[in-house]
């Protein structure tokens, strides 16, 4: 049995930090925990496959076939950059970066988001950690924000950072006379905003859904399953009724449509106004769901 020593329990009369630091404490601790797992790192790099593929495309077009474009069937540098390859369109187009691998990027993002985010609050609920959080000097909204920022950051790592690295690499290796930078720079800020919006929406919905269960596996299956099923349902309805508005059934399609508008990418055939309306309703439902399941009065004691 350890006895109490004087230095073992000193008083603390210093200032206490504010809410922002406390939220960041949750976020940084969680990110450190996730990145400390080797399995996660392997999974993370697998999920970066679209960015790696884009990287390879840029590398081939700018470096490997530099000077031998005639052999590849391209006349000059601008033609090579604008050419549509098997994995993506023109590397001068916003669509190439918005959805790497022609939709494959989004699919992997959905899987990645489910694995890293669907269980983020469910795990705490299962371990009884919510009681520990809510009896501290923070509000449930601060706790939720801390978790939301974690998931948002991880999704941005997978989506945004990958494409930014590709773009920065391309800028650094593109021939100065090709016009690559001047062609792509105008849409980069909008693209960043679109990806940030897309990831933030997914992170919010993930965290909200995660509040209502204490099973991580169920949370992951529910997220991926619901999105996949609704996507399939939307496809079936579209074939039956031949109207683009049936895609509004799929939350993923809805948020992607708004992100396309922000990025200035080629829009899908859904109405933007209807998409914003559905997005708003879904966010309101997620907010209600969160408030309902994160009540300290019910969790503590």
């Amino acid at each position: 049995m350890t006895t109490i020593h004087d230095f073992g329990l000193r008083g603390y009369d210093g200032d206490r930090v504010g809410v922002r630091e406390r939220i960041l404490a949750i976020t940084t601790t969680e990110i450190r925990r996730i990145f400390s797992k080797k399995m996660f790192l392997v999974f993370f790099f697998l999920m970066m496959a679209p960015a790696i593929m884009a990287f390879v495309i840029v590398w081939i077009r700018f470096i490997v076939i530099e000077g031998s474009g005639q052999l590849m069937g391209f006349g000059n540098r601008m033609e090579r950059m604008a050419a549509r390859g098997p994995f993506g369109g023109s590397i001068l187009d916003v669509d190439f970066y918005f959805d790497l691998l022609r939709g494959g990027g989004t699919a992997l993002t959905l899987i990645f988001s489910g694995v890293v985010g669907a269980g983020i609050i469910a795990r705490d609920r299962a371990a009884g950690a919510l009681e520990l959080y809510f009896t501290r000097g923070i509000r449930p909204i601060s706790y939720f924000l801390g978790k939301f920022l974690t998931v948002w950051f991880l999704l941005l790592c997978q989506v945004l950072f990958g494409f930014l690295i590709v773009w920065i690499f391309a800028v650094s290796v593109a021939p100065t006379d090709s016009g690559y930078f001047s062609e792509t720079w105008p849409f980069i800020p909008r693209l960043i905003a679109a990806q940030a919006f897309f990831c933030a929406t997914l992170a919010f919905w993930l965290c909200a859904l995660s509040t209502s269960t204490d099973s991580v596996r169920f949370a992951i299956l529910r997220w991926i399953g619901v999105l996949a099923v609704l996507r399939i349902v939307a496809g079936i309805l579209n074939k039956l009724f031949m109207t683009p508005s049936t895609h509004l059934v799929s939350p993923h399609q809805v948020v992607k449509r708004i992100a396309q508008a922000i990025a200035g990418a080629e829009p899908s055939d859904m109405s933007l106004e209807s998409s914003i309306l559905v997005w708003g309703v879904l966010c309101a439902l997620a907010l209600y769901w969160t408030r309902r399941h994160l009540r300290p009065v019910e969790i503590v004691g």
Partner: peptide, 29 residues
């Protein structure tokens, strides 16, 4: 507060759990 039910910060060591608890109560890192 020390709850009755089993409660811990999942995936964290004892040290990290207590550090986080301190930071959530306003202690500088």
């Amino acid at each position: 507060y020390m709850p009755e039910k089993e409660a811990y910060m999942p995936g964290l060591s004892g040290l990290d759990s207590v550090i986080l608890a301190g930071r959530l109560s306003g202690l500088p890192k």
